[in-house]
Design a protein around this nucleic acid. Structure first.
Lengths: 109, 109
DNA sequence: TGATTATATCAACATTCGTTGATTAATCAA
DNA sequence: TTGATTAATCAACGAATGTTGATATAATCA
C-alpha cells in the first residue's frame, strides 16, 4: 500500500500542525470539549495574535473546527482528523511481523 | 492525564520529524526492512548531503536506527518509537465518548 | 449613536529549517 | 601505499515559520 504524493503532502501538513508546543497545548485543552478563544488565551498566556495564528494552522489542517457565537468563537477538536491520524500512523508501521529483518541484504556487497 | 512540558517537547520533536515529505518517503521505504543509504539515495533521487540531513533528523527523533557495515550504513525503523507515536495519538483524542459536547458552556456569556 | 470587546489579519522582524556544494573521515581495493 | 567510494559534517544561503505590535472587522453594550 504505497503512499501517494498528494497523500504525503497531506500527511506532512497534519504532522506539521502537530509539531509545535503551543498547538499541542491547545489540543490538550480541547480534549475536554469546546473552548472559546478567550479561555485558551487565559490558560496558555499567549498573546492574542499569536494564538490566532496557531489556531489558523490547526484549522487549515482540519484538526479543529470553529463555531461563531456572538462576539466569541469557540474551537473544538475535529475527531475525524484524529481518526485519520491514527490511520496514518498505522500505515507507517511495518506491514507484517517478521519482514523487518529480511528483505534487503541485497544492496551493496 | 495532562501532558507535561518535557513531554510536549518530545511529542513536538516526534511530529516535526514526520512533517517533511522527504522524511516520510524515507520511512515509507524502511517499512519493508533495512536499507542502506546508497539505496535510499537512488530511489529518492536526493543529493547525498540532503538525504544525510534528513536521516539525522529521523535518527535524533529516535524514529530510525543505523547500523554500520564496512563502508555502508544501513537504516531501519525503530518500531518502539512508532508504538510511542501511536500512544501519543491515542492521548490526543478526547477521553470519553460523550464528554466532547458538554463541559464548557461556562466561558463567556 | 459611540465606546468597548473578541477575534482575525497584516507588516516587520527574528528564528528555524532545508538545500547546495565543499570538505572530511573511514573503509576498501589495486 | 595510493586512489576510489560511502557517508557525515560544515558553511552559506534562501525559504518557511513563528512572534510582535498595529490595525481592521464584527458584535455587543451604554
Amino acid at each position: 500500500m504505497p503512499t501517494e504524493t498528494a497523500d504525503l503532502q497531506r500527511v506532512a501538513q497534519l504532522f506539521h500542525a502537530l509539531s509545535d508546543e503551543t498547538r499541542l497545548a491547545v489540543i490538550e485543552m480541547l480534549r475536554n470539549g469546546e473552548r472559546c478563544v478567550c479561555e485558551l488565551q487565559g490558560d496558555l498566556d499567549a498573546a492574542q495574535s499569536r494564538l490566532s495564528f496557531h489556531l489558523k494552522v490547526l484549522k487549515d489542517a482540519n484538526l479543529v473546527v470553529d463555531r461563531k457565537d456572538g462576539r466569541w468563537v469557540h474551537y473544538s477538536l475535529n475527531t475525524d482528523s484524529l481518526a485519520e491520524l491514527a490511520d496514518v500512523i498505522a500505515r507507517l508501521a511495518p506491514p507484517q511481523r517478521h519482514s523487518t529483518v529480511r528483505s534487503s541484504q541485497s544492496c551493496c556487497t
